[in-house]
Computed example of a mutant assay.
Amino acid sequence: MVVVDPDFVRLMRRLRQEHGMSFRDLAKKAYFSRSYLCEVENGKKPPSLHLAKALDVCLNAEGQLTRLVTAGPDDQEREFPFRSAASGDCPDRDVEAWLTRSTWPAQLGGSTPVSASQWAQVATMLYDVFVRSRPPLLRLGPDRYANPSQRERNLTPFAAEATMQGRTPRVECRAVSRQQAPSDVAALLSLDLGDTVVLRENRYLVDGQPVQLGHTYLPTSVVGTSTLATELNLGPGGTFAALERLGYRTARIREQVTTRFPTRDEAEALKLPPGVPVIVLLHASYDNDGFPFEATRYILRSDAMAVQYVAQVAA
């Protein structure tokens, strides 16, 4: 049985108003639905101990709300570690660790059943991510490679489509190395298993927020010792402009789209909240002779991006 002090509702309302936060603002920060928070503050639903702890962090209440909620032995929840020995008494750092999913696999895969309120939190968070209206950045499919104006302005396909949608793009090349091509990439590039390729690892941001990762694989026979194989910064136009300077212009593409949950490294790089899957888009570029000269595995945030294709249908 959960026992809630009547002062909980009054304190929650006062703290929320003092911070100038709407229910929508608080829902985004605490990862509970706006309607549920509204019902709790209006006394229509009781708060869980987990909600009290989340609100303490979001409203800088220093444990005041948690002390007003008492759970009996049968109602103790297996809590997420908002405070831990590793992070001391800094709740913000602990919340950041929770948001990057680092603790979720252990929590959901443990021997103790996950509480109903935790599953409810996951459900409300997924509703907020996938149902609530949020304008995604559209990835424009084949059109992004066939836009002459982007060549004139020396824009990458990502920069061109983001700018067209009123967003501010930025691309970070995080590493350039030589690696063995993964089997699916080797097949796309008509390489033998074990062949070496140049791997360029990029992170793509719009309005300062990471929305996409890209691992670009380039045959060594294509890039040789050019800047594509040695430099992080390729200058205006990025990878595709550098490939065109080597004589490789995209005439045809092949793309395969799947979905899955992110790895821990992907979740951290994209700053994903728990429970959000990613879109995996495996792309290959071909020249006019059908030669595959580039393959990229894109990892897209499913809550921030959408893939759009428009194709002519023959009569």
Score class of each variant (00 low, 15 high):
A27H: 04
P113E: 03
S302L: 12
R153P: 00
L137V: 12
F82M: 14
D265I: 11
T163R: 15
E255W: 02
K53G: 02
L137K: 01
L99W: 05
I253E: 13
Y36R: 01
T196P: 08
A146R: 15
S285H: 10
T259G: 07
S177P: 15
Q17W: 07
P142H: 12
N202F: 03
N42E: 15
L193Q: 09
R151K: 13
V114Y: 03
L15F: 04
G194H: 10
V276I: 12
G237Q: 15
S84H: 03
C173K: 03
Q121P: 00
L281C: 08
T156H: 06
M125K: 00
V9Q: 12
L282G: 02
T296D: 05
R178F: 07
S177C: 12
T220Q: 14
S302Y: 06
F291D: 09
L26C: 10
A267H: 01
L243G: 02
R249W: 02
A97H: 07
P148T: 10
R132G: 04
Y145S: 03
P136V: 04
P219D: 04
V313D: 11
G224A: 11
Y36P: 01
I299F: 04
L189S: 03
A160G: 07
Q76P: 04
P73A: 05
D195H: 09
V57P: 00
E39W: 04
S221E: 14
P91D: 03
V129D: 12
V206C: 13
S183C: 09
R93D: 06
W119D: 02
F80H: 06
Q64I: 10
S111F: 11
R67Y: 03
L137H: 14
F291I: 06
M21F: 05
M12H: 09
L282F: 04
V176K: 01
D143H: 13
L281D: 02
F23D: 08
M21A: 08
A284W: 02
V171T: 15
A229I: 10
V131D: 06
G166T: 08
V211K: 00
A30I: 05
F8D: 00
T124R: 06
T227S: 14
L300G: 01
R245P: 02
F23M: 14
W104K: 07
A160L: 08
L51P: 00
P274C: 11
A315Q: 12
T239H: 02
L300I: 06
L37T: 01
L99Y: 05
N60C: 12
P6A: 14
D192Y: 06
V95T: 05
A314T: 11
T220A: 08
F291N: 11
P273S: 13
A269D: 07
L126I: 07
L272S: 00
K28C: 06
Q17D: 13
R10K: 13
G247D: 01
V223A: 07
L55P: 00
T196G: 06
G63L: 05
S302F: 12
V313Y: 09
V211Q: 01
W119S: 02
T230W: 03
M12F: 15
P6E: 13
F32V: 11
K45Y: 02
A229F: 09
A242H: 03
V2I: 15
K45G: 00
E96Y: 07
H283S: 10
E39T: 00
G141S: 10
V198N: 07
